[in-house]
């Protein structure tokens, strides 16, 4: 198999490059390889779309204001308060 045929079928490499490109840099050669692969591989095109969407969702999820449902219970807060007060009295 010549190099181009190899990349055309190599979904492992293509998805790796997709991830690398998302958050870092890939070389010109890698960009070309990825382009060739994606032109012929619908499954990896879907992967790429979904991967982008997942990154966006994760960002959204973590950058929301403090969610109502995640809270420390009052008992633990009382203990914390007590601990701080004690330290300050030292």
């Amino acid at each position: 198999m010549d190099e181009l045929t190899k990349i055309a079928y190599n979904c492992k490499k293509a998805t790796y490059l997709i991830e690398k490109q998302h958050i870092g840099e890939i070389t010109l050669r890698e960009k070309l390889e990825l382009k060739i692969h994606l032109a012929g591989c619908r499954v990896c095109r879907i992967f790429q779309q979904q991967s982008t969407a997942i990154n966006r969702m994760i960002k959204n999820m973590f950058h929301q204001p403090v969610a109502e449902n995640i809270k420390l219970d009052d008992k633990f807060k009382d203990e914390l308060q007590h601990l701080i007060d004690k330290q300050l009295e030292k």
Binding site: Y9, N10, C11, K12, K13, V43, C44, I46, F47, Q49, Q50, A53, I54, M57
Partner: peptide, 17 residues
């Protein structure tokens, strides 16, 4: 060997697009 997706693991559209 070929490094293409195994049939069971192939991504399919499921709405997050």
């Amino acid at each position: 060997d070929a490094h293409n997706w195994k049939p069971d693991h192939r991504p399919a559209e499921f709405g997050i697009e």
